[in-house]
Amino acid sequence: MLLWINGPFGGGKTQTAHEIHRRLPGSVVCDPEHAGFGLRRMLPPGLRGDFQELTSWRTGVVEVLDLALTKHDGVVIAPMTVTDPGCFAETVGRLRELGHPVHHFTLLAQRETVLKRLRERGLGHLPRYVAGKNAGLRRESWAVSRLDHCLERLSEPEFAEHLWTDHTTVPKTADRIAVLAGLTLRPNNEGALRTRVRQAWVGLRHIRFD
Rank of each mutant, 00 (worst) to 15 (best):
P101A: 09
H104A: 13
A131S: 12
G93I: 02
I77Q: 13
E97Y: 13
V82F: 01
H103F: 09
H103T: 06
Q110V: 03
V76C: 07
E90R: 15
A131K: 03
L65Y: 05
T83H: 14
L108R: 08
V92F: 00
V102T: 11
L65E: 02
H125I: 06
V76P: 01
H100K: 07
L69R: 07
F105L: 07
A68D: 00
T70F: 03
L123W: 14
L115T: 14
G122S: 11
T70Y: 01
L123R: 13
T106R: 01
P79E: 09
T113H: 07
L98Q: 11
R128P: 01
G93P: 03
E112I: 08
R94D: 11
T81Q: 14
E90L: 13
T106D: 02
R111W: 05
D66H: 15
L98E: 08
A109C: 05
A89I: 09
L115C: 12
D73F: 05
G136T: 02
P85G: 09
E120R: 15
R121S: 12
P85F: 11
T91S: 14
L107E: 01
C87F: 10
L108P: 04
L69I: 10
G99S: 07
T83C: 14
L108K: 05
C87M: 09
A135I: 01
G99H: 08
L69C: 13
H104Y: 15
G132A: 08
P101K: 07
L118F: 06
V76K: 06
L115I: 12
T81G: 10
L98R: 15
V130T: 05
H103I: 01
R111Q: 12
T70C: 06
G74D: 11
R121E: 08
F88H: 14
G99V: 06
L98C: 09
A109M: 04
L115K: 15
A109P: 03
R119G: 01
V75F: 05
R117M: 07
G136S: 07
E120G: 00
F88A: 00
L69D: 10
G99P: 00
V102E: 12
T83N: 11
G122M: 15
K133C: 02
A135C: 09
H100W: 10
R119V: 01
P101N: 10
G124T: 04
L98D: 06
A68R: 08
E112H: 15
A135W: 00
E97F: 09
Y129M: 10
M80G: 00
V75T: 13
Y129A: 11
A78E: 06
H103L: 03
G99Y: 03
T81W: 04
M80F: 15
E120C: 00
P127G: 03
P79N: 12
F88P: 01
K71S: 02
V82W: 04
L126Y: 06
H104K: 14
H72I: 09
L95I: 08
G86R: 14
R119C: 01
H104W: 13
E112K: 12
T70Q: 12
P101H: 14
K71Q: 04
D84Q: 15
H103V: 04
T81R: 14
G86I: 04
G132K: 05
P101L: 13
A109N: 04
